[in-house]
């Protein structure tokens, strides 16, 4: 289990590295698709079918939008000259990476090992969802009943994004 996940995560890292360094923007977008679709398999292995269904559809739609934008503009990556600004950026990135790695080592010491989650918080949800809401799918029960505010905020964000895209992309006014 842990080995399979490690191999998949290794593929995802290789895909991400290729997506960042690709010379062609179209292949960069498709390499980002590798990361997204590997995530679907990881979700299935981790017993999260809801997430797998949502992720596979959302990833497809994201890829369609990205490919449409890339084909509509340009496919060529910029010529990266190594100048002073670039060196400053790379060293800044390395400093950030070392700093975050330090905090990560501090934080993982407090985490449970993989597969031994203690369910302190979720016992209430697991035990009471069926009797209180009558929903067989615990994720839906949590999403729409115990944590309805989150769902409402999420729907509002999607609504705002649609209105934002409409107002950004409109050239002629509507009469």
């Amino acid at each position: 289990m842990e080995l399979t996940l490690s191999i998949l995560l290794g593929f995802m890292i290789i895909g991400a590295l290729f997506a960042i360094h690709a010379k062609d923007l179209l292949s960069a977008v498709i390499a980002a698709g590798i990361v997204g679709y590997s995530l679907v398999i990881c979700f299935l292995l981790l017993k999260a079918p809801d997430l797998a269904i949502v992720q596979i559809v959302v990833e497809t739609i994201t890829l369609i939008i990205m490919v449409a934008v890339v084909l509509d503009s340009t496919r060529e990556e910029l010529k990266v000259k190594v100048d002073r600004q670039q060196i400053i950026n790379i060293s800044l990135a390395l400093i950030f990476i070392v700093l975050l790695a330090f905090f990560f080592v501090q934080a993982t010491g407090k985490l449970n090992p993989f597969g031994e989650h203690t369910l302190r918080m979720a016992n209430a949800y697991v035990g009471e969802t069926a009797s209180k809401t009558g929903s067989t799918n615990l994720v839906t029960g949590v999403l729409f009943d115990f944590r309805g505010y989150d769902t409402l905020g999420e729907a509002t964000i999607l609504f705002t994004a649609a209105i934002g895209v409409l107002s950004i992309l409109r050239i002629k006014g509507r009469k």
Binding site: P49, D50, A52, I53, V54, V57, V58, I61, G134, S135, T136, N137, V139, T140, G141, L143
Partner: peptide
């Protein structure tokens, strides 16, 4: 959505 995996988000995206 309340019986099997899925729900509003997945169905809407499909």
């Amino acid at each position: 959505g309340h019986l099997t995996p899925g729900g509003g988000f997945a169905g809407g995206a499909l």
